[in-house]
Design a binder for these strands. Structure first.
Length: 605
RNA sequence: GGUGGCGUAGCCAAGUGGUUAGGCAACGGUUUGCAAAACCGUCAUACGCGGGUUCGAAUCCCGCCGCCACCUCCA
């Protein structure tokens, strides 16, 4: 198997990934998460999804990954936001609904985000472990850690307090500032841009602690008032003397949260730090500077020089950044109607975007809704190092792709059947195909997460399997391959969503005796309005008429089989109008029916 | 102005010196009562433009053109 290579923003080179863990087993990963003062959009999710693909690729490589994705809930909500409730701004609307408690507003959007994250199958939000709050740390619950870091920075001479009670990081004290982004900020030019009454010593200096009375979230480092009791207790433990007396009540600067939280939950050194390309500067540049100043982490990683030998350890060893998503080759814009939240696409009508729903319907999306798996596929279908040009048409292509894979998966499941019989041997032809396809898939992902090539391997395998007749043992191997693909892609519906009805099974319903025996299977009889009459008919060995069953809404496998039998009966009588009506009716209830040489196949949409 | 990046067939998107990437769409065929799915075929001797290096260039070099993002809180 190939080795994983990643483009490290720090070195600007493709590097072989090697975890810090001496046993080469555990990997720590920090993903810059969402700011929860609005609903997250698909551009945000492109970034989170590439991190998810990275995490799953690491797992395919046998690593045990601990991925932390923070929640930035120290927002920019001020009194102005609450006062101005007339606009379209969702923050204002939410604030009005939820009252003036900024924590409630943040929680509202955080929960909305978690919902989207689960829908789009971010692994950090799935499974039992996902309930661990340490995996999704909130900035507002790490004020003690941040003040601790700020105090360290002051003590070690990397920061200064100004008259207003704010704290700034002094960039001049850190010569490596700018190395990640490659930005050399010309002091003269920067100086020209600086505000008149700025208290900063150097225009490049950035805020660690801010003071602004208009902000709703406030913490006073010198008084318990307004603090979460647990946080206050932890703060007193971390800083028994309290923070510098000159620091006034306020709130943390943007960058310090990630330095503090990654250290709190992943330790001194993290293997991988991910984010969007806009994070490179200034956010990550500042994190490096702060972590160096506060925790004595060094700047560059082990690439060439092992961390173990160094007294000062690296803050983050691999910096991996995703490019922006564009819509119609521009940055998303509300004005141009090219701004999409995840919720907008999953259910446009619910979000009040009827026009969008209509457009999606035109592209063949039932109800104008985009299935989450399709959105996920669309957002991972090109390599994270390339800008993604998103369009509604790309969603239609994604849907076709997902359906192609899903159809193959469903049929393999049918071919395997439910027999626990694991005897039988797959032919070399199939074994070779499976091994080769899996290698190609992993090789592509290991090559800096080249998802287009990984998908090419998937589609190649699907195409080859489509043109083969597979025995149960072979289908089992092929199914395992599809499941291996899906460990990373995670776009398949793994529920029992399809079934086959043979001609013989359909025929059996026409036999009076069998019909009576099958009556018990029809659990949903109760839904039929005239069930007594129906029952009598069955007892008499007569197949019910299609019209009688039309009101039955929820279908199980037995009910579907009955519909198939009714349709087949009509087909035999060459009553194609009725036959098509039955098929259309099943479709209306979300069941697609297909004819096959052996009989019939049904698939839940 | 500074920095980084992109331009590959109708659309999306790999490939970065030498044998078909792949997907989607469209069209034709096989199959079907009609569909669906699947298969086969076509669109496809594609690589922004102009030079150069080379036996050979989408790939390397030079020069243009067009587009995009970032440059203090937007993933």
């Amino acid at each position: 198997m190939s080795v994983l290579k990643l483009k490290n923003t720090y070195s600007k080179r493709l590097e072989v990934f090697q975890p810090l863990d001496p046993h080469g087993q555990r990997v720590t990963m920090y993903t810059c998460g969402p700011t929860v003062y609005n609903y997250v959009h698909i551009g945000n999710f492109r970034s989170f999804l590439f991190a998810d693909i990275l995490r799953r690729t690491l797992e395919r490589n046998g690593y045990e990954v601990r991925q932390v994705m923070n929640i930035t809930d120290v927002g920019h909500m001020t009194e102005d936001h609450l006062a101005d409730a007339g606009g379209e701004d969702k923050l204002a609307v939410a604030a009005r609904k939820l009252g003036s408690d900024p924590f409630k507003v943040a929680l509202h959007f955080e929960q909305a985000f978690a919902q989207d994250a689960r829908a789009l199958r971010l692994k950090v939000y799935q499974g039992g472990e996902a309930g661990d709050p340490a995996l999704h740390p909130r900035a507002t619950r790490h004020i003690p850690e941040m003040l601790h870091a700020i105090q360290k920075l002051l003590e070690q001479g990397f920061a200064y307090v100004v008259d207003s009670g704010e704290v700034y990081f002094e960039v001049g004290k850190f010569p490596e500032y700018g190395r990640l982004s490659g930005k050399v900020i010309d002091e003269l030019e920067a100086g020209a841009r600086v505000g008149v009454r700025d208290e900063k010593r150097d225009p490049r200096d950035f805020a660690l602690w801010k003071v602004d009375a208009k902000h709703l979230m406030q913490w006073d480092p010198h008084s318990e008032k307004g603090w979460d009791p647990q946080d206050w207790k932890r703060y007193r433990e971390l800083l028994p003397e309290g923070a510098d007396k000159r620091i006034r009540a306020g709130f943390p600067g943007w960058h310090i949260e990630c330095s503090a939280m990654s250290r709190a939950h992943l330790g001194h050194t993290i293997d991988i730090h991910t984010g969007g390309e806009d994070n490179i500067f200034p956010h990550h540049e500042c994190e490096i500077a702060q972590s160096y100043g506060a925790y004595r982490t060094c700047v560059h990683g082990p690439h060439g020089a092992p961390d173990e030998g160094s007294q000062r350890k690296t803050f983050a060893r691999y910096w991996v950044h995703g490019r922006f998503l564009l819509v119609n080759n521009r940055k998303m814009s509300k004005r141009d109607g090219t701004f999409f939240t995840v919720k907008d696409l999953l259910d446009p009508r619910r979000e009040g975007r009827a026009e969008l729903a209509a457009e999606l319907e035109k592209l063949g999306f039932a109800g104008g809704r985009v299935p989450a798996s399709v959105l996920r596929f669309a957002l991972i279908a090109n390599q994270y190092t390339q800008p993604m040009n998103f369009s509604l048409e790309s969603l239609a292509a994604a849907r076709a792709g997902v359906e192609r894979i899903q159809t193959r998966y469903d049929r393999l499941r049918e071919a395997v059947g439910d027999s626990a019989d694991t005897s039988g041997v797959a032919s070399d032809r199939v074994l070779e195909l499976v091994n080769r396809a899996e290698t190609e898939f992993d090789d592509a992902l290991n090559d800096n997460l080249n998802t287009p090539n990984a998908l090419a391997a998937v589609f190649k395998a699907v195409g080859e399997l489509n043109s083969m007749e597979l025995g149960p043992a072979e289908a089992r191997e092929a199914l395992r391959l599809m499941e291996a693909f899906d460990e990373v892609l995670d776009v398949l519906d793994r529920t029992e969503r399809s079934g086959v009805v043979t001609r013989e099974q359909a025929q059996a319903w026409l036999d009076p005796q069998t019909l009576r025996a099958k009556a018990d299977l029809l659990k949903h009889w109760a839904e039929a309005p005239d069930r007594e009459a129906l029952w009598e008919r069955i007892e008499a060995g007569q197949l019910p008429a299609f019209e009688e069953l039309a009101p039955v809404e929820s279908l199980d496998a037995a009910m579907i089989e009955l519909f198939v039998a009714i349709r087949q009966n009509a087909r035999k009588a060459r009553d194609f109008k009725l036959a098509d009506a039955v098929r259309d009716d099943l479709k209306r209830r979300g069941v697609n029916l297909e004819d096959t040489p052996q009989g019939f196949r049904w698939v839940r949409a």
